[in-house]
Write a protein that binds this DNA or RNA. Structure first.
Lengths: 240, 240
DNA sequence: CGGTTGTTTGACGCAGTTCAAGCGGAGTGG
DNA sequence: CCACTCCGCTTGAACTGCGTCAAACAACCG
């Protein structure tokens, strides 16, 4: 199970054997979370960082009004919470969308590993920079893209990311979100998300049913979304 | 001039003399940019990272449609472009809003400094994590806050950040943005930003005129925005 | 001065929200 | 096995926050 995490880190840099072993050794302590549970709660300050091994999680914030904004999805292999390593208590929560197995890595051990293998530190840093790139892309969407473009875009993005860790079969993949989740991620209402999904189906670009996405016309969908995967930094040699 | 940058880094960790000197030594090569010029262009891959010494810059993206989304503002002291240090070509640009003096620090020198002073590396990393927190906060705003709340929020945020580096005098500060800039930052139209500013003035919460902001009623404005400064990680002891 | 860039105001339109109501499937308890 | 409930999906109708269009105005500048 830790293989996907390894795979992701190796996108950041070519690891030596020793580095690989040191990294995998971090992932020994794992824990299972039920769907809907909080892996890390808002305001909490856990003594460990989290790596997703299986399942899907999301970062989210709930406003005083009760409105929820999902900030990102995390999939197998993602280091989802370096925040607590260097920063203060969490300013958002991480919730399990499906049942999830995660590794909880004590901060102390991360610091030790970085001290012994500085390049791993750079890889972790790089990973948080990629997270930032995702945030920016979503911001562009919420600020300047229509609902239709946003939904198309997120489907492209998720497909791309799942493919990169071997979790998509061709142009079809599991994405066990409700329309409500999707709406909270895109800053829309669930009803409007539904209408957009209908339109995507009618136009034979993609279908989303019962947590399964099928992309029927990748090129059209990509064009409709204005999706350019460079920001994901997948499949590009890192400058290290 | 590099003092503000030093001040900002010292928010991240208490520096030893040697670390302080090493950091300041990075900032020797400076360059002046005219208002409106690009400090770093989209798609570029500069051999250096940038530190703002004076002036204000913004990260932004321009979509094929011509729409612009501003992703963040940077002020004196901000390390605005660690992206290029560890990642691929820029997926967004950094533009000078006012005339700006910046330090351009060759990547090679950053890597050297980090190798000699690993704690500086952690401080840089931490800084990019704070950037991420800002992105998230803006995302929440664009997804789930009204135009009114968003504008109020950005005024609170900028005031807080400028105060932290000594660039605000009480509840008044220079913010040489056009209403168009503000609109592009909040994902709104300039006209609607104007309406919101009128309302804020009418309600005696804040005024924005000719690049000067005056906050008349901080507590009301804060409440209207739902502003909680914790995400800025200012004035909190870092866990390092 | 005229030209350019930003601000101001009003009228109108629409993308997306809210409200309301029915439907189906998955659990759960009798 | 049915009855009941929840939760998510679906659809339609009405509403509204914000965008678009248009036009005048002010400030700056070469």
């Amino acid at each position: 199970m830790p293989n996907r995490a390894l795979r992701k880190i190796q996108r950041h840099l070519a690891l030596s054997d020793a580095e690989r072993r040191a990294f995998l050794a971090l992932l020994t302590e794992t824990k299972l979370f039920k769907a809907g549970a909080d892996v890390v709660s808002d305001g909490e300050w856990p003594p460990h960082s989290t790596v997703i091994l299986t399942g899907i999680t999301c970062r989210y914030r709930v406003l005083p009004t009760g409105a929820r904004q999902i900030l990102a999805f995390q999939i197998a292999g993602d280091l989802c919470d370096m925040h607590s390593l260097l920063l203060q208590p969490m300013d958002h929560a991480i919730g399990a969308i499906t049942e999830c197995r995660v590794a909880q890595v004590p901060h102390r051990r991360i610091h030790e590993v970085i001290r012994r293998f500085p390049r791993l530190g750079l890889a972790f840093w790089r990973d948080t920079l990629v997270d930032g790139a995702l945030f920016r892309e979503w911001m562009v969407g919420m600020g300047r893209r229509s609902a239709y473009e946003r939904v198309a875009h997120v489907l492209c993005e998720v497909h791309f990311r799942l493919s990169a860790v071997g979790l998509a079969s061709g142009y079809s993949f599991e994405l066990p979100l409700t329309q409500i989740d999707l709406a909270d991620a895109m800053g829309l209402s669930a009803i409007h998300v539904h209408r957009v999904l209908q339109q995507l189906k009618r136009e034979k670009l993609a279908t989303f049913r019962k947590g399964t996405v099928v992309i029927h016309d990748w090129e059209q969908l990509r064009a409709a979304a204005g999706f350019d995967p460079r920001y994901l930094q997948i499949g590009q040699a890192p400058p290290m």
